[in-house]
Every structure is written in C-alpha cells, then in structure tokens.
Computed example of a mutant assay.
Amino acid sequence: MIIKKIEGLIAAPFTPFDENGDLNLEQIPAYYQSLKSNQVKGGFICGSTGEGVSLTFQEKVAVVQAWSTLTKTDPDFKLIVLLGGTNIRECIELAKISEEEGVDAISFTSPFYFKPANVGQLAACCVEIAAAAPNTAFYYYHIPVLTGGNYPMIDLLKAVDGVIPNFAGIKYTHEDFMDFLSCMNFAGRKYDMLWGRDENMLSSLILGAKGAVGSTYNYAAPLYHDLISAFNAGDFERANALQQKSIDMITLLGKYGGISVGKTYMKLIGLDCGKFRLPIKNMSQEQFVAFQSDVAELEFASFSSK
C-alpha cells in the first residue's frame, strides 16, 4: 500500500449530543461544512475529544457512518477513525466496518486496563487490528498521559516495519521531542508523524512536522493557519506570538474544567455539541459567564473559526 502523508490541520471533532445526552447526528453535516470552510483537511473521530471511550459500540458505528456518508466522495478531506484500545475484538470489528464505509484511515491506542507488557505486545495488537482492514491506512495513537502506555515510539516503528503493510504512521500526543524526531527520521522518513499537541505546534514545525491532529482546530483553525504561515515565511516572532495566543486559549480549558470546555468554545462559533458524558464535569452557568469574559479579553473572535 502506498501511504500518502497528511499535511495541514486535522481536527479531532467532538461527538454531538442532544439535551438528553444521546447522539445528535443531525449536527454532523454542519460540523463538516464548518471544518471545510476553515480549510481543515480532515477529522479524527471517536478519539479523546470525541469521547470514544464513552460511546457504545453501536454509537461508534453510527458516528462513523454519519461522517463517512459526507466524506467518502471528498478526496480533500481525510476521515480517520479511532477504533479504541482496550477491547481488541471490538477494534477488529470496527476496523472492518470502517473499511466497508470507505474511511481514509483507522487508528488504535494502547490498551489502558490490561496494558501490554512491552512494545512487542503492543505491536502484536497492531498486527491483528490492521490486518482486519488491509486496504485502509493504519495509525497508532500515542497518548500516554491517558493510556499509561509510555512506550518509545521509535521501538514500535522498528517492531512493525515490514510487518504491517498498511501501517501509515503515528498520531503523536506527547512531549518527547527526541523520540518524535527519531520516528520522523526512521527508515528514510517512511512514516507519517502527525503532531498531537496544539500548544506545542511551533516546536513540532521546527522539527519538520507537516501534519497535526488537535481539538482546538475545531474552533480556532485560522490561528494555526496563521502560525504555520508565519513559520514558513521565517517570521518567528509572529509565530511565537501566535503560539502564545494558542497557549492562552488552551489555558482556559484548565481554568474552567478541562476537555469539556472545548464544547463551550464550539457554542461560541455556532455549533452546539451538547455536554460531555460522565465522568467528565461540565461547566456551570456561573462559570460560563466568567468564561465569556475571559474569552472576550483573549479576543477569541479575531482568530476563531467562522
């Protein structure tokens, strides 16, 4: 399989819920159009931001089908499905369904209850799952802060190289720049390394990253387009300032409760994705008032997605 490397921004969409906490699939067409109009190149669905671990298997299938219906005929938009991590059999089943639906890529993250004893065991999981969708690109999703699977990714690449024909690369959501660069340079830069820390994008660009997957690209894509343009033009002072703006925006997530605050940012650009499911805590109405004040001070409207 010839793997074409991804360049540009890939958003990690939120899964839309209605007021009862059920799937609101009717929101997805408008969501897709919003990403397209803001020059986002794809979506990484059912991931951390998409609450994949809080969805039933049937809900994941429904989300995949809702997105793939829109994207399967769009060669300019890459749809990547996070299959999960803990239940390998379910990952295999969803991999098969995803290939049938014509998605561009599938992804798998480290099992986080019964953890692989070593990289070899992790690679064995990847082998079985990737084989279930042999005609679809396969990405490993490295996010040890959530999975506890803090394996060197350079060791994983060595373990799967020449073994998994459709292994495309890694979505790298970690701060180990030494490991990231080693992965980028491995086997003549064979594999696609997608950066996964929005607040550290500038550092990844310096190392040569071309593609990135992140949650804040859902609602602040223009900020990152400007950052990339400034970097490419050699205007490092402006790139620095734009990265700081990203950090200031992301700091508000921590101030007001974490990942769920992203859905509040989405409301500000006109896409109501509902609330996060338990065990995640959502913002109170009192917090929302204070949040709006902080967002105005940040001048969010000047760089938000439209």
Score class of each variant (00 low, 15 high):
165 P>I: 09
165 P>K: 14
166 N>R: 00
166 N>T: 05
167 F>K: 03
169 G>R: 00
171 K>C: 08
171 K>L: 04
172 Y>K: 02
173 T>F: 02
174 H>D: 15
175 E>G: 12
175 E>R: 11
176 D>R: 02
176 D>Y: 07
177 F>V: 11
180 F>H: 07
180 F>A: 15
183 C>E: 02
183 C>W: 02
184 M>S: 06
184 M>R: 11
185 N>K: 15
185 N>D: 12
185 N>E: 13
187 A>M: 09
187 A>Q: 14
187 A>R: 11
187 A>S: 14
188 G>T: 00
188 G>K: 11
189 R>L: 08
190 K>T: 09
191 Y>R: 07
192 D>R: 00
192 D>L: 03
193 M>R: 01
193 M>L: 15
194 L>R: 01
195 W>A: 13
195 W>H: 12
195 W>R: 01
196 G>R: 01
196 G>A: 00
198 D>M: 05
198 D>L: 00
199 E>F: 01
199 E>T: 02
199 E>L: 01
199 E>P: 01
200 N>T: 11
200 N>W: 07
201 M>A: 04
202 L>P: 01
202 L>T: 06
203 S>N: 12
204 S>V: 01
204 S>K: 01
204 S>Q: 04
207 L>V: 06
210 K>S: 08
212 A>K: 05
213 V>C: 05
213 V>R: 00
214 G>K: 03
214 G>R: 05
214 G>C: 06
216 T>Q: 09
217 Y>E: 08
217 Y>V: 06
218 N>E: 12
220 A>D: 08
222 P>I: 11
222 P>H: 06
223 L>A: 08
224 Y>S: 07
225 H>K: 10
226 D>M: 11
226 D>R: 15
227 L>Y: 02
227 L>T: 04
229 S>K: 13
230 A>T: 08
230 A>E: 03
230 A>R: 00
231 F>D: 06
231 F>E: 03
232 N>K: 14
232 N>E: 15
233 A>D: 14
234 G>P: 09
234 G>I: 03
235 D>W: 10
237 E>I: 13
238 R>T: 15
238 R>S: 15
238 R>A: 12
239 A>L: 05
240 N>V: 05
240 N>S: 14
240 N>A: 10
241 A>S: 13
241 A>D: 15
242 L>H: 07
244 Q>S: 12
245 K>A: 11
248 D>T: 04
249 M>C: 11
250 I>L: 13
250 I>F: 06
250 I>Y: 08
250 I>Q: 05
251 T>S: 14
251 T>E: 14
252 L>I: 09
253 L>C: 13
254 G>K: 04
254 G>A: 06
255 K>W: 07
255 K>D: 12
256 Y>H: 09
256 Y>C: 09
258 G>W: 09
258 G>E: 07
260 S>W: 05
261 V>W: 00
261 V>M: 11
